[in-house]
Amino acid sequence: MTQTVRIGTRRSELALAQARQVAAALARLGVRSTTVAVTSAGDTAREPLSKLGTVGVFAARLRTALLENECDIAVHSFKDLPTQKIPGLETAAVPKRETAADVLVTASGAELGDLRQGAKIGTGSPRRAAQLKRLRPDLRIMDIRGNIGTRISRVRGLHPQAEGDLDAVVLAHAGLIRLGRTDIPSRILPILPAPAQGALAVECRSQDCPAPEKTHPLSPLARALENLNDPESNFSASAERAVLAGLQAGCAAPVGAVYENGILRAGVFSPDGSSALEAELPAAQYPHAGELGLALASLLLERGAESVAPLHLNKTRRSGGSGGDISPFAGSALWREEKQDPTAAANDISAKW
């Protein structure tokens, strides 16, 4: 392949590390690449993530760059993408997934149960906050922002050059691994992760997607993306995201899901941690990830998920990375989750796989 593939990525340390991971995988397939870094509104905004709406806020600028031919592919944290399909774009590959787990980071490597009464824990995730409150109602959950390094520096006693104001922070284990920070004292938390946490999504324009229904020969880029895809990782992440699509869960809804050992589990949690509803289904009866996720979402709804948590809790954000609307895509699903047909959304997620 003589084409040099332009890889679109955000400018954060973790996003650049993820782009380098994809670039290395493409290099092993004989594909040359270069990185195109953009700044998203999620990177520049100062509001808490729970108010911004975590789904889509980091992806919109990158998707715009892809649609406007500033790059050939875009690398996302799969959990950051809205479930709604964007016309002209496709998820072409999900490389081999890292662990989906959340971890508790402390100076001593303490378990959650070992923390002092009323300990202060930092997280910007309503899903994490709800489950932590359920496990330890005494904890003081602090809404925090910033990259991994910034969050780690807030842990009291962990960073030699920072005083620290928190007893612990909660991070995705995959992020620490990708940044080579496995030296940080951490313990895996017994909570449900965000759907598709630990998975990357490589997005491309529709004409470059290696969809099996295409009758004409694949382009060199499409062939490379086909080889980059890990079917097992794609299935697990897509099944989890189909739960979100079926629930029509908004950006700030405390919903978790994980697929492992042939079982899809998901849960809906009240924001204050007082109640929860969890369910699971085996994959054996569902050949497609979308069907499995939708079936589990239906089961949760039948059992009263909407009475447990505000599933449609959301926050629309329309400003671009440098202020002002993104044109011509402002107000579209580039930014926000909109009411949609959940069956169609789940089919968009996994029909190819």
Rank of each mutant, 00 (worst) to 15 (best):
L158K: 02
L158I: 03
L158P: 00
H159A: 14
P160Y: 04
Q161T: 07
Q161D: 12
Q161S: 08
Q161A: 11
E163H: 04
G164N: 03
G164S: 04
G164C: 00
G164H: 00
D165C: 04
L166M: 06
L166F: 07
L166K: 05
L166N: 03
D167N: 07
D167L: 02
D167T: 06
D167S: 02
A168Q: 04
A168M: 09
A168K: 02
V169H: 03
V170R: 04
V170N: 01
V170K: 01
L171T: 01
L171P: 00
L171I: 09
A172G: 11
H173E: 14
A174K: 00
G175E: 12
G175Q: 04
L176H: 00
L176D: 00
I177V: 15
R178V: 10
R178C: 05
L179E: 10
R181V: 00
T182I: 12
T182E: 13
T182G: 04
T182Q: 14
T182A: 11
D183R: 13
D183Y: 10
I184R: 09
I184L: 14
I184Q: 04
S186Y: 05
R187F: 05
L189Q: 09
L189N: 06
P190D: 13
P190K: 13
I191W: 09
L192A: 05
L192Y: 07
L192C: 02
P193C: 03
P193I: 07
P195M: 06
P195W: 07
A196T: 01
A196Q: 03
Q197D: 12
G198D: 02
G198R: 01
G198K: 01
A199D: 08
A199N: 04
L200I: 07
A201T: 01
A201I: 02
V202P: 02
E203C: 15
C204I: 09
C204D: 10
R205G: 09
R205K: 10
S206M: 12
Q207Y: 14
Q207F: 14
Q207G: 11
Q207A: 15
D208I: 09
D208G: 09
C209I: 03
C209W: 14
E213R: 15
E213P: 02
K214Q: 14
K214V: 11
K214H: 12
T215Q: 14
H216V: 14
H216N: 11
P217Q: 13
L218D: 11
L218Y: 13
S219L: 11
S219P: 00
L221T: 03
A222F: 08
A222H: 08
R223K: 15
R223C: 09
R223A: 12
A224C: 10
A224P: 04
A224F: 07
A224E: 07
L225D: 03
L225M: 11
L225W: 05
E226T: 09
E226V: 06
N227H: 14
N227M: 15
N227W: 12
L228H: 12
L228V: 13
N229C: 15
P231M: 09
E232H: 14
N234H: 15
S236L: 08
S236T: 09
S236Q: 11
A237E: 10
S238P: 00
A239T: 05
E240A: 11
E240C: 08
R241E: 05
R241V: 02
V243T: 10
V243Y: 10
V243D: 06
L244Q: 05
L244D: 05
G246C: 05
L247H: 11
L247Y: 07
Q248V: 08
A249G: 02
A249H: 03
